Amino acid sequence: MYLEQTAQRAMTYLDSVGVAADYDIKYMVLVVRTDEHEFSVAHDGFLTDFICNIASAYPQKSPV
């Protein structure tokens, strides 16, 4: 359940910054793929760090 929630959080974030992505959960590992990057985390990994890594690769754009 935690991986599914984390996947939804990642997809919502990526959608908010305009990045298309897919995700898979296999063997208790979450993988999020974009055109440029692939992020993965195991069920017992640091889920917050996982989201932070995605945000670091795709930061929010400040309004002009």
Rank of each mutant, 00 (worst) to 15 (best):
L14K: 05
L14E: 04
D15L: 03
D15E: 02
D15I: 00
D15G: 09
S16V: 06
V17P: 09
V17W: 01
V17E: 05
V17I: 08
V17C: 04
G18A: 06
V19S: 06
V19T: 14
V19W: 10
V19M: 03
V19I: 15
A20E: 15
A20Y: 12
A21D: 10
A21N: 11
D22F: 10
D22P: 06
D22L: 12
Y23N: 15
Y23S: 14
D24I: 01
D24G: 07
D24A: 11
K26P: 07
K26V: 13
K26S: 12
Y27C: 13
Y27A: 15
M28D: 09
M28T: 03
M28G: 01
V29M: 13
V29F: 04
V29G: 12
L30G: 06
L30P: 14
L30M: 08
V31N: 08
V32T: 09
V32H: 01
R33S: 08
R33P: 01
R33C: 07
T34I: 02
T34N: 11
T34C: 03
T34M: 03
D35G: 12
D35V: 07
E36T: 03
E36I: 00
E36S: 05
E36M: 07
E36K: 08
E36V: 02
H37S: 07
H37T: 01
H37D: 09
H37G: 02
H37I: 08
E38Y: 03
E38Q: 10
E38F: 00
F39L: 04
F39S: 05
F39P: 00
S40K: 11
S40P: 11
V41S: 13
V41D: 10
V41I: 13
V41L: 07
A42N: 12
A42Y: 05
A42C: 10
A42P: 11
A42H: 11
H43V: 12
D44A: 13
D44N: 15
G45H: 00
G45E: 06
F46G: 10
F46P: 00
L47P: 07
D49G: 12
D49Q: 12
D49N: 13
F50I: 00
F50S: 06
F50N: 08
F50H: 06
F50D: 04
F50G: 07
I51A: 10
I51E: 15
I51W: 11
I51F: 13
I51V: 09
C52D: 13
N53K: 10
N53S: 08
N53E: 06
N53D: 09
I54F: 05
I54N: 10
I54A: 03
I54W: 05
I54S: 04
A55F: 01
A55T: 00
A55N: 03
A55D: 05
A57M: 03
Y58K: 04
Y58F: 10
P59L: 03
P59H: 06
Q60C: 00
K61Q: 14
